[in-house]
Design a binder for these strands. Structure first.
Lengths: 342, 342
DNA sequence: TTGAAAGCGCTAACAT
DNA sequence: ATGTTAGCGCTTTCAA
């Protein structure tokens, strides 16, 4: 590799500026600015000359300078857990659409469920002066955001509530959804029902167990501690958890899966048994209809849209008190949740 | 709504700057800059005083100003078709991981397969002076990017080649993958095989039909035009296309689905028949193993990672000639592609 | 070790 | 209709 070129040779600095365009077109700087921004007060002829210079030089406005002057970046930050998780695709897209409608771009990052990384990401976004922030919390202490919120950075927490800070929050009704899903199993005759979910430090996870317990209590059923398994949702752990509750001294006849990743693994494990126990999963999954998986679906696009709408409401000047929205879930019966106990 | 507050009251402008921090700490501006950026040449004592002022004021460096001076934003733009498509989740995430390893943030947008929107997005990213750009092309003419490429904005095209512009390109081997998939059906005894794919203007779509035709020709089979259907991949069109080729005068005994969306619909349609025709789909799908769907899988995370690596290679000063990489696909046999003809 | 001055490219405010 | 000047908040350069 003949790498004779100096490191920064081809980088910025050689990009034309408005000043260059002005010189070439033989007009003043401000006239170029007017043309670039479509402001009035430029004759058609001047406008044409400027436009020619712009095209000839390949000029593009430098938004860093513009932002520095205007104070608004027209961008919003989205910090989620994992962009690759199918739950977050539609959510991101919905946020993006709302942002687009408001002329804003989306900057997003994955926290990988690591509070430290969440904070780094959020602060990096704040340094870039995003106008607003949508955060799916990984950590449980967001006081580091106080200066930003005070400074008027619109902030919305999604999927889980914020820690120690007041802000708009958009959630799915995890408690109610789980309760309904478990009640559905009970209604189909099950008495010994297992719950496999995420680590209890995650708000949605603990809410869903709470829903499970409530449904059991509602029906006057006692929930054996051996039927509840909370922890990481990697296939290995979920598999052994499910197998354990199917083979214990008081084996369950049905399983409630706490999220999409758990459901996927649970489906695999249950499919291996000749008479598969019943299953209801939280979160819908693609092709779940073909597999006949009964789920409690949350509308992740609606969650994203709602959050973005709250965000822009604030950016548009609203000073409403921090709101907490819980979107309803939908039980979709497809077969796996209606199988009777063995 | 008592909206007495003026519109911009709580927005920027009231954020502390380095100057404010300097005043409060009783030091010079440059000393604050040194502390904020961890540069040497500050005594421990001075550093502490500055840090206290920073914390007290809730100061965050304004990266817009920094960027304006330094010329690099440490951000890369990713323009894809639809963030909500499961194919792009892992791809985005892989790009993000590589970017993160290089200290860069990811700005991304969905073109919705609209060339106009692609260009708007790309130019908005250029105005923000992203250091690099990863684009899944919607349009077929990218000459509008010439000024940027000339100015040293690293650019990588993904999934489809660029139009009329020289740049690094990372693709999956659509032709080879489709050819292999169709050959697989032929090897299992099929002679009348249908192909349902996306609009032929999309590069991957036409490559895949080409692979289909090549496989048929390789086997000395003639491909009836009625067996090939290209167009939008919404469920309605795909459904009627599949049904048409199953009920025509020379009905197919197997279907090759050109992408994940087509596969999903095809699975549904075929499942309705008592003796389902064989099926191979391009792109893997979650739970495809449980449904026994044979696919030609492309590794979207690898595509994203490779693209990002090329991008940062250029950002790190490489001046290699524009490369074109084709990543291999993998045929995964799971049952649907091994069913013999009726 | 520390700081003062210049300037990155743009827009706001004010001439002309 | 058009141009001039100041300055956004930071980093670079150079001097103390």
């Amino acid at each position: 590799m003949a790498q004779t070129a100096r490191h920064s040779e081809t980088r910025y600095g050689n990009r034309p500026t408005m000043k260059d365009v002005a010189a070439r077109a033989g007009v003043g700087l401000k006239t170029v600015s007017r043309v670039v921004n479509g402001e009035p007060g430029v004759t058609a002829d001047t406008g044409r000359r400027v436009q020619e210079a712009i095209d000839a030089l390949g000029f593009r406005r430098n938004d860093s300078a513009r932002v520095l002057r205007k104070g608004r970046t027209s961008s919003v930050g989205l910090v989620l857990e994992d962009l690759a998780d199918p739950f977050y695709g539609p959510l991101s897209r919905a946020v993006e659409e709302v942002a687009r409608a408001h002329g804003a771009l989306l900057i997003n990052g994955s926290s990988a469920e690591d509070p430290q990384r969440e904070q780094e990401l959020v602060l990096a976004l704040c340094a870039r002066r995003v106008d607003g922030l949508i955060v799916i919390p990984a950590g449980d202490d967001h006081r580091y955001l106080e200066p930003e919120i005070k400074a008027g950075v619109a902030t919305v927490f999604v999927d889980r509530p914020a820690g120690r800070v007041e802000a708009d929050t958009v959630l799915s009704d995890s408690f109610g959804g789980a309760r309904e899903g478990v009640a559905h199993l009970i209604a189909h005759g099950h008495r010994r029902i297992g719950f496999v979910g995420d680590r209890p430090a995650i708000h949605t996870a603990s809410e869903r167990v709470r829903g499970y317990r409530a449904a059991m209590a509602d029906a006057g059923l006692e929930a054996d501690p051996a039927w509840v398994s909370l922890g990481p949702t990697d296939p290995g752990r979920v598999r052994s958890a499910v197998e354990a509750m199917l083979t214990g001294p008081r084996p369950v006849t049905a399983v409630f899966a706490g999220n999409n990743r758990v459901t996927v693994t649970a489906v695999r494990v249950l499919a291996e048994r000749e008479r598969p126990p019943a299953l209801v999963g939280f979160d819908d999954i693609e092709l779940a209809d073909l597999l006949g998986i009964t789920v409690v679906a949350q509308d992740s696009a609606a969650v994203g849209r709602t959050a973005a709408e709250y965000l822009f409401r604030r950016l548009d000047g609203s000073h409403h008190a921090p709101a907490r929205v819980e979107l309803p879930t939908t039980l979709i019966a497809r077969g796996s949740g209606e199988r009777p106990p063995a």
